[in-house]
Design a protein around this nucleic acid. Structure first.
Lengths: 209, 209
DNA sequence: AAGTAGTTTAAACAAGCGTTTAAAATAACG
DNA sequence: CGTTATTTTAAACGCTTGTTTAAACTACTT
């Protein structure tokens, strides 16, 4: 395996578990078993490494996601469950792409929104706008009465639900094991969260004052 | 104002905006206009300072919250909207306690769940179990059909929604201003999130396979 | 007024950080 | 084979981190 990929693999796991700020280049190169200077040689800087880690996933995910959402839009009258279920297959496909891929990616997404003053949010929204656009279109078709402003709020809440849940999914799975004696996978977490966010986005429009 | 409080005030704002890892003691003591060593003299360590910042809020919040939730349980048949609305007054009361108190506290809560490997989660659940217990009781009364396992999931999702929303509430308020020309307060965010989480928690029980 | 306890101060500490350098090792190509 | 290019390496860079030290200063008590 190439040095570049060894770095990407080690960085991905460490970033997901300890955040971007919380992971040093020495930890990464130590786990990847490569020289410290290799990061700056191959990626230029730590910030560029973070982008590279995210890009590797987004380039895999975004075409699948866009096409799945487009398919939902072709349904006669799609439900919000249809919309959110469109995420399942593309997200779980990241597990074939790499071990713990789904979990790692979603955790990284969560980190990106709280660590590093939102530069990752900027990166994602400017580099992969097609995903967001198709998502909004699908929700609009499933719930046309939802105003633009209400949509803005609820999609943000949904982002929060998913991102937070995933960034602590390891703890969640542990608790589920000890409290309910159930062995859960990341796929179970995804399937559990869909009715929740679908109901949240589908809540009746509140009366404005 | 005492040195101790000057440190707490400066630390609170910086922690909320930049996270615990992302804020140095020199930034804190600089903004507080206090000597660097004062933190270790008065609090012992950075970790203890973080606890002190959180405790100051929790000691103000938890009795109000517990009593509000107990009141909801006394309603004949409370709705989930009732349950979550019980949070409004106690949370907004933090604004009288300190400028931007509500926003700062909720952002800190969000930081605590992702920064610092969850030691803050441990701190909160062990030090303030009464809040969680009363919350669960209220939800149980409002939605008795919800199984313990489903409750576990949905409360976690709710925590995620709130915590994530609040930790990025500054960005949210900025976007709302530029996209919808609406000047929002933290209270608007709270009022918007309630129908969402109430609908999410109130979603019908899914069929198990 | 002297002495003591509490507080503040400047300076230094060791350790860790991301990044750079220049030499050594490896690979690729005419 | 010999000569470029590319990659890897060890060492050091300057800087920031949390924490500690010991002296200076303040306030209160006897």
């Amino acid at each position: 395996m190439s040095t570049k990929n060894k770095i990407l693999d080690a960085a991905e796991t460490l970033f997901a578990n300890k955040g971007f700020n919380g992971t040093s280049l020495r930890e990464i190169t130590g786990q990847a078993d490569v020289n410290l200077a290799a990061v700056n040689y191959h990626f230029g800087s730590k910030k560029e490494l973070i982008k590279a880690v995210m890009s590797r996933y987004m380039n895999e995910l975004s075409p699948r996601l866009e096409s799945a959402l487009r398919q939902v839009c072709e349904i006669e009258s799609p439900s919000l469950i249809n919309v959110f279920s469109a995420f399942i297959e593309p997200l779980l496909s990241l597990n074939k792409f790499k071990n713990n891929g789904t979990s790692n990616f979603l955790q990284l997404l969560g980190r990106g929104y709280t660590d590093s003053q939102g530069f990752l949010r900027w990166f994602l929204t400017t580099q992969y706008p097609g995903v967001i656009d198709n998502f909004v279109l699908a929700v609009q078709k499933a719930y046309p009465e939802l105003s633009a402003e209400e949509m803005f709020w609820r999609l943000h809440f949904t982002m929060g639900t998913v991102v937070f849940t995933m960034s602590s999914s390891d703890a969640l799975i542990d608790i589920a094991k000890s409290d309910f004696d159930r062995d859960l996978q990341i796929s179970d977490v995804i399937r559990n969260v869909i009715p929740y966010v679908a109901a949240g986005v589908g809540a009746p429009m509140p009366l404005r004052n």
